[in-house]
Structures are given as C-alpha cells and as structure tokens.
Amino acid sequence: MSEFAAAAEAIDRLRAELTGLGVTGVHEIGNDGTLSVWIGLVVRFRDGFYRWQEGQVKRRHLGTDPEGCAIRVARRYAELQSDVPSWWEELAKILRGDVAEDYP
C-alpha cells in the first residue's frame, strides 16, 4: 500500500471515530490527508503517526490506534468549544454566511 493510500485510510478511520464521539463538521483539507477539526486544530497522518497541531502545540499518536487518537482530539475539541473566541461568530458570518455557524 502506498504512503498516500495508507494516509487516506488512516484519516478515514480517524474521521469515523471522531464522528462517533460527536465531533461533526470535520473535513479534509487538500490531498495530503489533513483533517480540519476546529479553529487552528488540524490532524495529519504521516510516518505511521497521527500528528495534530493547534498553533504552536504539536502532538502525535500511534497510527494503529485511531480510537485513542480520536478520544484525545475530541477532548481538546471540547475544551476549545467551551471557549470560542469572540471574533469567531462575526468572522464566520462574514466569510460563509449563517450556514457556517457550527463549523470553524
């Protein structure tokens, strides 16, 4: 299996786990197996690891454990959701209209 195919499969498994945990609105960015989860919170799969970044903070999790990774990412997502930046709602309306309310 090619590196690209492995990354795509790993990202699909992670997305399914995140959806099961109630993290909706996750979408893939580009063709390199990158998921956008929330404002500045992205997850990539590379070299057998899920790697996620939020600003300067970088984390990684074994690629053989999408469930464990999803739990950690979902926990951080919930923390971020509890303190949405005040500028987010206005920016979302300007950039995408009212349909973007739930998605950062």
Rank of each mutant, 00 (worst) to 15 (best):
E3C: 02
E3A: 12
A6T: 08
A6K: 15
E9M: 07
A10C: 02
I11S: 04
I11F: 01
I11G: 03
R13D: 10
R13T: 02
L14W: 03
R15C: 08
R15E: 12
R15G: 04
E17Y: 00
E17I: 00
L18Y: 01
G20D: 03
G22A: 13
T24A: 13
T24K: 09
V26R: 09
H27E: 08
I29W: 07
I29A: 14
I29E: 11
G30P: 01
G30H: 01
N31V: 14
D32F: 12
G33D: 04
L35E: 04
L35S: 03
S36V: 04
S36M: 14
V37D: 05
V37I: 13
V37T: 01
G40F: 08
L41I: 02
V43A: 10
V43T: 12
V43Y: 06
R46N: 00
D47I: 03
F49V: 06
F49H: 10
F49R: 13
Y50P: 00
Y50L: 05
R51G: 01
V57S: 10
V57Q: 14
V57R: 12
K58Q: 15
R60H: 12
H61I: 09
L62A: 11
T64E: 06
T64S: 13
D65F: 12
P66I: 00
P66A: 02
C69A: 15
C69F: 02
A70W: 06
I71T: 13
I71W: 07
I71H: 11
R72W: 11
R72L: 15
V73W: 09
A74D: 07
A74S: 13
Q81F: 01
Q81S: 12
S82N: 08
V84G: 00
V84Q: 07
P85T: 03
S86L: 11
W87V: 14
A92C: 08
G97R: 06
G97L: 06
D98Q: 14
D98G: 04
D98S: 12
A100Y: 02
A100T: 03
E101M: 02
D102F: 10
D102I: 05
